[in-house]
Amino acid sequence: MQLKTRIAACLAALCGTIGAAQAHNLWLLPSSTVLSKSEWVTVDAAVSNDLFFFNHVPLNIERLAVTAPDGSAVALENVHRGKLRSVFDLNLARPGTYQIALVNSGLNASYKDASGQARRWRGMPEKFAAEVPANAQDLKVTQSQGRVETFITVGKPSAVRATGQGLELVPVTHPNDLVKGEQATFAFHIDGRPAQGVEVVLLAGGTRYRDAKDEIKAVTDAQGRFSVTFPSAGMYWMEAQAQDGKTSMPQAKVRRLSYAGTFEVLP
Rank of each mutant, 00 (worst) to 15 (best):
204 A>H: 15
181 G>T: 04
235 M>K: 08
9 A>C: 06
44 D>K: 12
120 R>L: 14
1 M>P: 12
262 T>V: 03
175 P>H: 01
239 E>R: 09
3 L>V: 15
250 P>K: 09
31 S>A: 11
202 L>Q: 12
235 M>W: 13
204 A>F: 04
24 H>D: 00
71 G>T: 09
175 P>Y: 03
4 K>V: 12
27 W>N: 07
132 V>L: 03
43 V>W: 10
263 F>V: 06
70 D>Q: 08
83 K>R: 13
4 K>N: 14
94 R>N: 08
98 Y>I: 01
132 V>H: 06
95 P>N: 03
218 A>L: 09
222 A>P: 03
249 M>Q: 14
73 A>R: 15
81 R>C: 14
26 L>Q: 09
78 N>T: 11
59 L>S: 12
194 P>S: 07
133 P>T: 05
143 Q>Y: 12
117 Q>S: 15
37 K>F: 04
141 V>N: 08
242 A>C: 01
250 P>R: 10
178 L>I: 01
152 I>K: 01
258 S>Q: 09
12 A>L: 05
140 K>V: 12
133 P>K: 10
158 S>V: 13
30 P>C: 03
100 I>S: 01
260 A>Y: 00
124 M>N: 11
156 K>T: 15
198 V>Y: 08
189 H>P: 00
8 A>E: 05
51 L>E: 09
177 D>F: 04
262 T>E: 02
204 A>M: 14
136 A>I: 01
205 G>T: 06
172 V>R: 13
37 K>C: 05
109 A>K: 12
142 T>A: 11
195 A>G: 05
102 L>H: 04
108 N>P: 00
5 T>H: 13
179 V>S: 04
